[in-house]
């Protein structure tokens, strides 16, 4: 499963080349790739969804229900995004808010605790493009990475593997650096 960047908010060639490389490499290896285009997704959790969040049926929208089913059925979640304000872009964060609700990413155990919900995930892979340098990114805590590799990882089974593929200082990346990065993405995808 591939979550691709929103073309309206992130006119970023490196992101689109990365997403394309993921798609082609996985498809060529015989995997079925489901791509989610965040440009067609409203990131705002609605009043009705908030009311439904604490019920047995938290998914009340056809699109989010279908995405949730796709997440539960997939083996690998590959997220491609451009870091915005040191964290996930609003479109991607909204996707987490609206799709990964109770019953999908976690279940309530009846005593107020939670159980992991994403038991079928073998891989969580983040492909992140940064305008900042490595040092500046670390100074602002790289919050998108924290959400995906810590918070989301805690919703998957203990054996789920993670991989982070970052491209720092992307605005100054020339064709050589970009091509090297895309090759790295392809190599990682071919390992799945």
């Amino acid at each position: 499963m591939l979550i691709a960047p929103d073309p309206n908010m992130q006119k970023n060639q490196i992101l689109h080349r990365s997403a394309h490389a993921v798609d082609i490499t996985l498809t060529t290896a015989g995997h079925t790739v489901r791509t989610i285009d965040l440009g067609r997704f409203s990131p705002v959790l609605t009043r009705l969804e908030m009311a439904a969040y604490v019920t047995d049926q938290p998914l009340i929208d056809e699109q989010t229900t279908e995405y949730a089913q796709a997440v539960l059925n997939c083996d690998a979640l590959v997220v491609v995004y451009a870091t915005t304000m040191s964290t996930l872009p609003p479109a991607l964060k909204g996707w987490l808010d609206r799709v990964l609700v109770p019953g999908v990413s976690f279940t309530l155990d009846g005593s107020g605790g939670t159980k992991r919900g994403l038991a079928g995930l073998d891989w969580i892979i983040g492909i992140a493009v940064y305008t900042d340098t490595w040092l500046a990114t670390k100074r602002t805590y790289d919050n998108g990475r924290r959400i995906l590799l810590r918070n989301l990882r805690l919703c998957a089974r203990p054996g789920t593997r993670t991989k982070w593929l970052p491209l720092y200082s992307a605005t100054t990346a020339d064709e050589d650096r970009t091509a090297t990065f895309i090759s790295r993405v392809e190599r990682q995808m071919s390992k799945l």
Binding site: M85, T87, A91, D97, L100
Partner: peptide, 18 residues
């Protein structure tokens, strides 16, 4: 706080504001 972060609507607003 949802997913240890601000809701998407606030992130979008903060991005525009910053």
């Amino acid at each position: 706080t949802w997913w240890t972060s601000q809701p998407a609507i606030l992130l979008g607003w903060l991005y525009a504001a910053t």
